[in-house]
Nucleic acid binder design. Structure first.
Lengths: 245, 245
DNA sequence: CGTACAATTGAGAATCCTCAAGAGCAGTGG
DNA sequence: CCACTGCTCTTGAGGATTCTCAATTGTACG
């Protein structure tokens, strides 16, 4: 079944409630499905697109995970976010038709390709789709604001704890365990995303482990004391962890 | 004339090329103008809306400037951005219909109120308007990504220099001087926005002054050596200063 | 002129980074 | 089966940047 994931269309996709079809009528979802192009799997470390590429499509994650980042003139990267199944990539190209960041697969992954021109036409026909597009864009913006808060006003420990909580939340909304999961990204990616060094991230993991809050074994994470982990970032409002697109 | 700025409608507004009407036909702009509500001036330190408020409108800055920020449970603030004339506020409410940040006026300012329901209807009728909405949303997202880069990977000096450059750019696009302007925000706002303390911001201003790059006198800024200022943030790609919504 | 607020400047402290070495794990080939 | 290589992650010590605390100066406004 998993090997046929790239053949599943919107009406049958278990992610449809998280993705663009949310809130649409059944026949509208079918309409949407007609413009979706399936792509071959994206392999680990393969780029989906590069900063500066012409962006004529949006991409929805069907399986796996991705990392988005901006490169500067010196080749330094800033990781902007991580994308999990059901999430939409490429929204930054809406401005000028060029991607302002690059996207790379963290593992073997599947995406659905949505041509912007067709999507725009469909938005005019299906009000619910236009609304959902706006909701998704609003979510991206709200999530980016949370990241700005994270980078601007949080200590290293708070950043790492927040990172884990946000992954926990998103895995939960996908129907996976919120307390046990495997990180698909390297420490380097986490550090870069959080504006820290990998040594600092590693030390924070170690500290949280020593306090019994989490158990870390390479990429595998187990949250033993969710309350403590949340208390670590208590300065945040309870519902302000929608975080990290 | 300035006192009548709140009576100027879209077809006559000198900001129309920066704002929603960009790219629209003349009659379409008139249509848009019919849904715009003029509001009384917003005074310094007056809130346009508060985090958590129901958001049924977007707001375009007609004159003056605003600061947006997120508050956490302890009352700490993170400034998310500054808004100048022609820019659209309230996009974060598109997700759930609630504002995720608060907006406060930095000086006496005018805004145009755009009811989302009417705007949505109009978007379905006017393809150009829908496109412009998506462009604006894409710009907001790209700009937020730049802020994440700024907070995640830049030194204090780079942050302050970047802040000045971005203001310079935006004033220039409004037709004002790119080398001489007055800051409408306090040091505290700048520091908070940049993830620094006001002391650090002040010291960076002093250093840039001592190097002859800028002249600072309270809120008044003069850029004497634009090349040096840009060199301070050279790690960035030349066109990556679209910055800071 | 005095108060309140904003901004600057200085000294010491804390956090995080840099540099360096070592440990753990996967894949390769003898 | 085991050593070897490459990569990732961890751990430690010292250093740099930025923050905290405190005092002073400057500016706006009644």
């Amino acid at each position: 079944m998993e090997s046929n994931v790239h053949k599943i269309s919107c009406p049958d996709c278990r992610l449809s409630d998280l993705c663009l079809p949310y809130g649409l009528q059944q026949n509208e979802v079918k309409q949407l499905a007609t413009i979706v192009k399936n792509k071959r799997p994206t392999q680990t470390d393969e780029y989906l697109y590069l900063q500066g590429d012409a962006g004529q499509n949006l991409y929805a994650v069907k399986s796996g995970s991705f990392r988005s980042f901006i490169s500067d003139a010196n080749g330094n990267e800033q990781t902007i976010g991580f994308y999990l199944p059901g999430e939409l990539m490429g929204l930054d190209a809406l401005q000028h038709g060029f991607f302002t960041c690059s996207i790379v697969a963290l593992e073997t992954s599947m995406v659905c390709e949505l041509p912007l021109s067709r999507l725009n036409e469909l938005c005019a026909e299906i009000p619910g789709l236009q609304n959902q597009m706006l909701r998704i864009l609003g979510k991206e913006i709200a999530s980016d604001h949370d990241k700005i808060l994270l980078l601007g006003h949080r200590s290293a420990k708070e950043r790492v704890a927040t990172f884990l909580l946000m992954l926990s939340r998103r895995y939960a909304s996908l129907g996976f365990s919120s307390t046990e999961f495997n990180l698909s990204m390297r420490r380097q990616d986490i550090a870069n995303f959080l504006g820290l060094t990998i040594e600092t991230v590693s030390r924070q993991f170690t500290e949280l482990s020593k306090d019994g809050v989490i158990t870390v074994k390479q990429r595998s994470i187990q949250i033993n004391d969710m309350a403590s982990l949340k208390a670590t970032v208590k300065p945040c409002l309870p519902d302000q962890l929608s975080f990290i697109a």
